[in-house]
Nucleic acid binder design. Structure first.
Lengths: 210, 210
DNA sequence: TCTCTCCTTGACCATATGGTCAGGAAAAGA
DNA sequence: TCTTTTCCTGACCATATGGTCAAGGAGAGA
């Protein structure tokens, strides 16, 4: 998808700075929202002068768009785990696993995504209408097939997908709340495992695939 | 909780304008986030001059805080539906119903709340640590009791609560996404009913209380 | 080495925004 | 009616912010 130009000092610097900026931007956008984020703060986090950001990303909007697109890629790729399976317990279980892992590894990305959608998807509306819609139709069909084959209860596939998204992403988007309720400490390895297991078992049982 | 001063033209005007501003603010904060919202825009939506907002609410932060507190009230009150029941199917079913109704009636409030938590709860951290924590402990204990009484499967009460919050609030916070996937139209009455039924049946079955 | 292209950045600018204030209008009370 | 208190608002201000630019520095190719 992204072409990798032959490495040279120049290209290295470019790639390095771009990812540096994108990482900083993701963090700042997640913590402050698009409106609350400032190019100056992103620059500080990235450890670069502000003018340098504008060399790589012309506008705040462009930088933001790149951040959101990156998340969307990751988000969609998690679906791969669902595809290979011919069993809901296996397929949906793996999908939950993958999405929980995303919530754990990319909480900021998840927040940016949530924020983007909450604000009416100003920059990725077209993706929602094309890529995401196709994706959703495909998985809904897959789920429907499983239902028809008697492998799970006859639930509404779309609402099942919403439940999967909601529940898994909640651990990133509302991570602060969960952390607060956990005595101010982030979930540790064991607690993450418990979270995954809980979500998986409740949902799989909920769709009659346990 | 809020004392109602004896009605007079003055107090009426005050109350009326405050709610007018709060409603406008809720909408604008939900759509633009705290950072993206401007006092000018809120004023325009409320149909008042900007200086008038500052007469009733000294600062943007104060106005925002009031909006968030209002949501929190509603949010907590939904729990009442869970309390009367001595059966998980009844109690949790009613709670889902109540929270789905909130998502439908107060989507903007839900978004403001989500945004606030996502950004680290800058203004309601103390509520999270006191009111919400107590609330959560109480309901977790209630759920545990149901489990001990053999009325439902032995799930982790906290993760069940997270799932309830996540799933129900998703219909407000990600309403735009759902609307897009629904062909650009908001869910109609029937679809909302289907959503409620889906969520309820999947979760209740998932906790062995169906 | 010389030249060209790309990278870096301090200084700068126009604008938008939160917030102020003085003075007037409208209720409330005496 | 007269006074006091509350409400209303246009004009104004200081500041923060996104974005620009010109001049210099560093790789790359010849």
């Amino acid at each position: 998808m992204t072409d990798t130009p032959r490495p040279s000092k120049r290209n290295e610097i470019r790639a390095q700075n771009e990812t540096l900026i994108l990482q900083a931007a993701e963090k700042v956008f997640a913590e402050a929202g698009f409106g609350g984020a400032t190019m100056q703060l992103i620059a500080d986090v990235a450890g670069l002068p502000k003018a340098n950001l504008h060399y790589y990303f012309a506008t705040k909007e462009e930088l933001y768009r790149r951040v959101v697109q990156n998340i969307f890629e990751i988000w969609l790729h998690a679906a791969d785990s669902m595809d290979g399976a011919d069993d809901p317990a296996e397929g949906i279980g793996a999908y939950i696993e993958a999405k929980m892992e995303i919530s754990r590894r990319h909480p900021n990305g998840s927040k940016v995504w949530a924020s983007e959608v909450m604000h009416g998807a100003p920059v990725i509306q077209d993706y929602l209408e094309t890529t995401l819609r196709d994706w959703t139709r495909g998985r809904a069909a897959l789920i429907q097939r499983w239902i028809d084959e008697g492998k799970m209860a006859p639930v509404d596939p779309e609402h099942l997908l919403y439940m999967l998204w909601a529940t898994t992403q909640h651990y990133a988007d509302f991570g602060h709340q969960i952390e607060t309720l956990n005595g101010g400490r982030p979930l540790d390895d064991l607690q993450w495992q418990a979270a995954k297991d809980s979500v998986k078992s409740m949902i799989l049982r909920g769709i009659g695939a346990a």
